[in-house]
Design a protein around this nucleic acid. Structure first.
Lengths: 110, 110
DNA sequence: AATCTTTATCGTAATATTGCAATCTGAAAA
DNA sequence: TTTTCAGATTGCAATATTACGATAAAGATT
């Protein structure tokens, strides 16, 4: 096997999994943090910031884009990438919800 | 290749990547949501809730445990699993931080 | 003890991911 | 037009993940 059985789970569950999976690599975490650090979102130097070859970085960017975490628009012959707030908000809400529900329970069983 | 170059990134980046990677599978999202749903954290029926075979579920539980997202304690001949709040809080803080930083900027370039 | 129940582990097959060299594309600059 | 530059795509090798049948381990039940 090896293929994830996405069709057996809800759309919401798959959506969260897609987002978190996309962030689930240190290089992609580093990309997001770099996009945060630079003030403007014009970025032609992501490759120089990472300890990875250009095709590898390009691939990671593609995955972040596919997951909806970043947006990229062509800017001359460079590309302007920036974080998609909506995706981050989704994640924040998701974990915020879990967190508040957990503290409300406070059964502290384990 | 195929092996992630974790040593080239910061500990924080690797930590976030480990957590998000662990959640980055619909079955593991479903497990977390089920642990939320049941009031008490005594769980012997996670397998029945998921469309996966028992060894597969066991493996997913192991990954969540290794990442620090859930805790499990032996309870008779069953095992009591529950969510580790600290891990969820880490994620909430992480995405909350990014979210507030993004709204403060509001350059809306892309 | 023999059995049941619950969870873990092993072994294996299928598929996915990671990483890079080489190459291609397309826009800007010369 | 030729060159240059930023980025994407292709092709490939190494490794990781996903899934499950078979089996093992360990406490509970009879």
């Amino acid at each position: 096997m090896g293929a994830t059985k996405t069709d057996h789970f809800t759309d919401k569950q798959n959506a969260i999994a897609t987002l978190t999976k996309a962030i689930g690599h240190p290089a992609r975490v580093a990309i997001i943090e770099y996009l945060m650090k630079v003030d403007t979102c014009i970025c032609g130097d992501i490759v120089n910031e990472l300890p990875l070859a250009q095709p590898t970085v390009s691939q990671h960017l593609k995955e972040l884009k596919n997951a909806g975490l970043i947006k990229g628009s062509i800017e001359g012959n460079a590309i302007c990438y920036c974080i998609d707030e909506k995706a981050i908000e989704k994640l924040q809400n998701y974990f915020g919800n879990i967190s508040t529900k957990l503290t409300n329970k406070k059964k502290d069983c384990c």
